[in-house]
């Protein structure tokens, strides 16, 4: 069974983002970019399924400018077999991403499609569910454990107040939550070897889907800054402050 893993290039999670002075967007020039951490967990899960003999081939896919290839190289260095770059220019939004990924899935015919549960830049958390909808496939979102049994995949999902286990017919779409696994460290020799693995390039416009943005960004701003508080010297003083603030 083939696994397709979608990965996104995002501003590294350790970088503090800055807004352009005119409020039109974010400063991205010279900012460190990385694979979205949830997508890295999705790649790792595909690798573990391959190591267990469930998956035979792992194809990593990303969408965007040619520079997005660096996250494909990362997935290849982790152990993905090959990669696909869907070259698209301008802003991509979840519905458009889902449509482009569906076109790739139609070509690749994977048994499992894995993504992160959300990207840490736009925090939308929609691409996996939308892709499942367009494919008419079952979805296992916020996955914290994945087991393939025959033509089904059993997924433990993290939900409000606990967990839920669902069984999905293959092909299915899974989105990875934080505790699904801990991704392996990429060693330098693997990064060098990954340069020899193939990356296929497809033009988004050749896939015959409408991926134009539906949401128009009007502006970006920063949330109101919280005024600095005071340090107290003892538990007794803290209790006094809390009573004055009428919160206890």
């Amino acid at each position: 069974m083939k696994a397709l893993v979608a990965v996104k290039r995002v501003v590294d999670h350790n970088v503090q983002v800055h807004i352009k002075p005119d409020g039109s967007g974010l400063e991205t020039a010279g900012v460190k970019m990385s694979i979205n951490p949830f997508d890295e967990i999705a790649v790792e899960e595909a690798l573990r399924l391959k190591e267990r003999g469930v998956v035979s081939e792992i194809v990593a896919v990303t969408l965007g400018e040619p520079v997005a290839q660096d996250v494909l190289r990362h997935a290849l260095a982790m152990g993905a077999d090959r990669a696909v770059l869907v070259e698209a220019h301008g802003e991509l939004q979840p519905l458009g991403v889902a449509k482009l990924l569906k076109a790739v899935a139609d070509r690749e015919q994977p048994g499992l499609i894995l993504l992160g549960k959300q990207a840490i830049d736009d925090d939308a958390g929609q691409a996996g569910q939308m892709l499942a909808a367009l494919l008419g496939a079952a979805q296992g979102t916020f996955a914290s454990a994945v087991t393939v049994n025959g033509d089904e995949v059993e997924v433990v999902r993290e939900v409000d107040g606990g967990t839920e286990t669902v069984a999905l017919k293959l092909p299915a779409v899974l989105t990875a939550d934080l505790r699904l696994n801990e991704p392996r460290f990429v060693k330098l020799p693997n990064l060098m070897m990954a340069k020899k693995k193939p990356i296929e390039q497809l033009a988004a416009d050749s896939l015959g889907v409408d991926y134009a943005p539906r949401l128009k960004r009007q502006k970006v701003g920063t949330p109101p800054h919280r005024a600095p508080g005071v340090k107290v010297n003892s538990v007794a003083e803290l209790v006094q402050k809390l009573r004055e603030a009428k919160v206890v």
């Binding site: 519905l95 939308a124 569910q129 939900v159």
Partner: peptide
């Protein structure tokens, strides 16, 4: 914006061919 809605609403939005606004 609960786990329940985060799971189901993007699927509904895609079937309706519309964007979703989360959170």
């Amino acid at each position: 914006h609960t786990a329940f809605a985060k799971n189901a609403l993007p699927r509904a939005a895609a079937l309706l061919d519309v964007a979703m606004l989360a959170d």
